[in-house]
Design a protein around this nucleic acid. Sequence first.
DNA 1: GTACGTCGGGACGCAACCGTACCGTCGTCG
DNA 2: CGACGACGGTACGGTTGCGTCCCGACGTAC
Lengths: 207, 207
Amino acid sequence: MLRGEITDAIRQAVMQELAAVGYGRLSIEAVARRAGVGKTAIYRRWSSKLEMVLEIVSRVAGQSLPLPDTGTLQGDLEILLRIVARALRHPLASQIIPDLLAEAARNPRIAQTLQESLRVNQRDVGNQVIGRAVDRGELPPGTDPDAAVDLIVGPIYWRLAVARTPLPDDHLPRMAASVASALGAGPPTGPGRSAAADGAATLPTPR
Amino acid sequence: MLRGEITDAIRQAVMQELAAVGYGRLSIEAVARRAGVGKTAIYRRWSSKLEMVLEIVSRVAGQSLPLPDTGTLQGDLEILLRIVARALRHPLASQIIPDLLAEAARNPRIAQTLQESLRVNQRDVGNQVIGRAVDRGELPPGTDPDAAVDLIVGPIYWRLAVARTPLPDDHLPRMAASVASALGAGPPTGPGRSAAADGAATLPTPR
DNA sequence: GTACGTCGGGACGCAACCGTACCGTCGTCG
DNA sequence: CGACGACGGTACGGTTGCGTCCCGACGTAC
């Protein structure tokens, strides 16, 4: 009964409006205006601004992405960084993602939805890359996946979404190499260290 | 003539309101309400919401922080991470910082003010730590300070401000070790590098 | 004691938006 | 061809905020 083209127009308008003014100032009327649609059409589909945004965003964020196995930690990282970089360079995403993350710190519903949408793509991808590297012997078995995700995604996110400094394409391999090194030396977790890089052991580590 | 206690109360209220609802939804009336103050008192001090927030935030963000020289890259990093972690754990800061960063992507005035306020503390601190490490021979001379900042601040920021996963105190040294390793192996920057940091020379990065 | 200026508070006109209701139109299904 | 339902548009009452103005109450400096 509801015409799909209208729904699509609304979805698109919500994303644009979200990027333009943020969730805090997003108004139904502005969305309707931008979509060339009556408010009625929106309220016929969603019950409130929050429900609308959650449904639309989670649909976009929930898309699964293919992650090829390159056979090398370095190669996997490079592809991973490239994917994240492309996403964060998207003009809409680069505005919407930080905005929703900030809003999530304040609104449990948003936080929960984002986390659920991203869990599949984030946690699984992280575990997958780390797991494969461990199997290959490139990383020690005790490697903490959570800490690994911090080291992988943190730098690229900071660069593109926080500092917003342009990142030349040829820097991605360097960053991948740095991250790979960080992962190798990183978590001297528990006993039974493997043979792989343990440069950290030579550094005096207080507490 | 303007009573300082009133100004302080307003400043405090702005920070709390900023944390509670974000910049987008911050209203002068709510600030006045929270501060127990008339709107008049606010408009007597600042001309608009934007000017008010910019002045108050830049005053807080502009505080210089002491950065002791521990004599080791690992030690410097650990202290640095500890400082950043403490800041990001602050209940007000942890809400306000991501919010303003998201808003900065949208409002040039905010972006400029934040950048100016943080330039002293961020760029200088980064350059200082890296420079000292290079002098000690812990890092290769060509190390790119910008890339280094990404690697240092990115993971801790992601962990605390984005993923908002609790970070046990004893993880900081491990993270510092990882970051140190990343910095060391990181920039295999081109051939025949000169001594002083000239990362810009190899980068097609205008300005 | 008088004059000044800030104080909180209230009221102003204006604007935007909420969520709902009611139009007349138009496409589609039966 | 007729009924149905979604469509864009408009209007509604109510709320919130803006930025300004005015008021009486203090407190202080002179």
